[in-house]
Lab assay of single mutants.
Amino acid sequence: LETFPLDVLVNTAAEDLPRGVDPSRKENYLSDEDFKAVFGMTRSAFANLPLWKQQNLKKEKGLF
């Protein structure tokens, strides 16, 4: 999966995202380093959170 810089994904409308980016899964296009910096946890820890908590975190970080 291709990764993009944080500033390309945060608070970006679906139509302005790079081609192929799923707007409902912007976090998947962050590098592992950016993911950890944004969410303060690994991808696996994030995946283990309840869906509502994942969505709330994504909203807080501008990735929803």
Rank of each mutant, 00 (worst) to 15 (best):
L1N: 14
E2L: 15
F4D: 03
P5M: 04
P5G: 07
P5V: 02
L6N: 04
D7T: 09
D7W: 14
D7P: 06
D7L: 10
V8P: 02
L9M: 04
N11F: 06
T12M: 11
A13C: 13
A13M: 10
E15G: 11
E15H: 12
D16S: 08
D16A: 11
D16Y: 07
L17K: 03
L17M: 07
L17I: 05
P18W: 01
R19Q: 13
R19Y: 10
R19H: 15
G20P: 05
V21T: 04
V21G: 03
P23V: 09
P23T: 07
P23E: 07
R25P: 02
K26S: 04
N28Q: 15
N28A: 15
Y29Q: 02
Y29N: 06
L30V: 04
S31T: 12
D32S: 06
D32W: 05
E33D: 13
E33V: 11
E33G: 09
D34G: 04
F35Y: 02
F35P: 00
F35D: 00
K36I: 15
K36Y: 15
K36A: 15
V38E: 04
F39V: 01
G40I: 02
G40W: 03
G40S: 08
M41W: 01
T42I: 07
T42F: 04
T42W: 04
T42L: 08
T42Q: 07
R43W: 05
S44H: 12
S44D: 14
S44N: 12
F46M: 01
F46Q: 00
A47R: 11
A47L: 12
A47T: 11
A47I: 11
A47K: 13
A47W: 09
N48H: 11
N48T: 13
P50I: 01
P50W: 01
L51Y: 13
L51P: 08
W52V: 09
W52K: 08
W52Q: 13
K53P: 00
K53A: 13
K53G: 06
Q54D: 00
Q55W: 09
Q55H: 11
Q55E: 15
N56D: 15
L57F: 04
L57G: 00
K58H: 02
K59Q: 10
K59D: 07
E60A: 11
E60K: 09
E60T: 07
E60H: 07
K61S: 09
K61I: 06
G62E: 04
G62I: 01
L63F: 10
L63T: 01
F64P: 06
